[in-house]
Design a binder for these strands. Structure first.
Lengths: 246, 246
DNA sequence: GGGGAGAGATGCCGC
DNA sequence: GCGGCATTTCTCCCC
């Protein structure tokens, strides 16, 4: 196959909005949020029906270059190569792929109406704690979870039998310094905004790093080892907004 | 092509460590850091020479399922379908793809020795500030950049003519609340560890969110609008470790 | 190997 | 659209 033929096949496939895969020798320039250049080598180019375009090297999990949510992809035939160009206006970005040789092309219309079901997210974790407050302590009474407030995003909050306001920050993986400063920020804001002093801060995570634990202790907060649930489930939606509580 | 033939082609391609792409109808189960299920539909499966495996839906930038750095990929032929299984021990994970129909297969040995050159990262930004301290102020004297210390990762630090220690936190995009708490943590740590009080904290970023700016002002820190450089360059490597300064 | 932090992060959701 | 934040984040780097 010569390059003109490859060019026509690819252009036709993109026009029909088929999933298109090109294995080729190419060089790549990117201008936009950053600037990148990748010299000549073999790569796999994926162009999807929603005009998102990915370039993969022969190794590694992530694309080396990409562009998504762009209005259209244009192609230009030159003498010794052809160019695939993807451009977006906001953010102003441009991806230019010069293709010198094409090894393989796939063009096929894929149909997929299914959506991924996923369990084990941080939201599942906060739901679990909300529905099973004894995981935190016997006298924890949750009010709501996953609530976005002016001072931040509270995973779970409530109060205990001593009238303390309780804020729980969940992490589905090892909690680090960032988790502790996040919790600290929420607590400071709740204290100053709501004018309450009796606030208990808790990190709920499968693990916590040593330095994060030290910082947590220095700030008088608590750590509770909890794993995210990994089963698919339904749960009730009872909620009490934080602003209704005060 | 029947399924047995597809099975053999794919197994052979994986064994030869060729880049392998399969367009097919399949269902997917994932067990590991989370749990996911994706019902029957058309997808594209990418298996690279380093045994990383990606499953893409017909739309979207990110893979719907994936697995990387796994020792090997195994395949099993069943009656009406065949299974591709990727398993890792740490973290304990398993990806199971049941393939019911194969539409297209590519198998090709890609060769790519080039590496991406990239400009415009946060490191480029801190390098630029280090080499052009007047971007911050006329009397800023940088000591080092990108230094990992016991109290955190300092993008750029130095001192001014009044003897203030200056810590700069760079962000290549809009600085948010997290950037401010990060800076605050570094400054608190420097103050308590080094016993110095005259510390100036600066966020250097193209933009800053209103709430982050308010928090920055509340804490007495400063904001300097600086854009990351987007040109390839070389720079000098003169450095002074923070521990040498004190 | 664990921990901390960036990434052209992406994606989601709420204001 | 911006902002805040999770992600099976991934990746790099350093202890």
């Amino acid at each position: 196959m010569d390059l003109n033929e490859d060019f026509a096949i690819i252009q036709n496939s993109i026009n029909k909005k088929f999933t298109t895969i090109i294995m080729c020798n190419c060089e790549i320039n990117y201008f936009g949020r950053a600037r990148s250049y990748l010299g000549e080598g073999d790569r796999m180019i994926i162009i999807k029906s929603d005009s998102c375009i990915l370039v993969h090297k022969p190794k590694g999990r992530n694309p080396v270059n990409w562009m998504s949510s762009i209005p259209q992809i244009t192609m230009n035939m030159e003498i010794d190569y052809f160019e695939i160009k993807a451009a977006s206006v906001k953010p102003k970005e441009e991806l230019l792929i010069n293709i010198f040789e094409v090894y393989k092309i796939i063009s096929y219309p894929l149909v997929d109406t299914e959506q991924l079901k996923l369990a084990g997210s941080e939201k599942d974790m906060s739901d679990m704690i909300y529905n099973n407050p004894s995981l935190i302590s016997d006298d924890f009474k949750p009010l709501n979870r996953e609530e976005k407030t002016e001072y931040g995003f509270l995973d779970v909050f409530g109060y205990d039998s001593k009238g303390n306001f309780v804020i729980i920050e969940c992490k589905r993986y090892t909690a680090g310094l960032g988790a502790v400063t996040q919790l600290r920020r929420y607590i400071e804001k709740v204290k100053s905004s709501k004018g309450i002093n009796k606030v208990i801060g808790i990190i709920a995570a499968p693990n916590i790093s040593p330095r994060a634990l030290k910082m947590l202790n220095d700030w008088g907060f608590e750590y509770k080892s909890i794993n995210p649930p990994k089963n698919f489930k339904e749960e009730s939606q009872n909620q009490i907004k934080i602003n209704k509580y005060f």
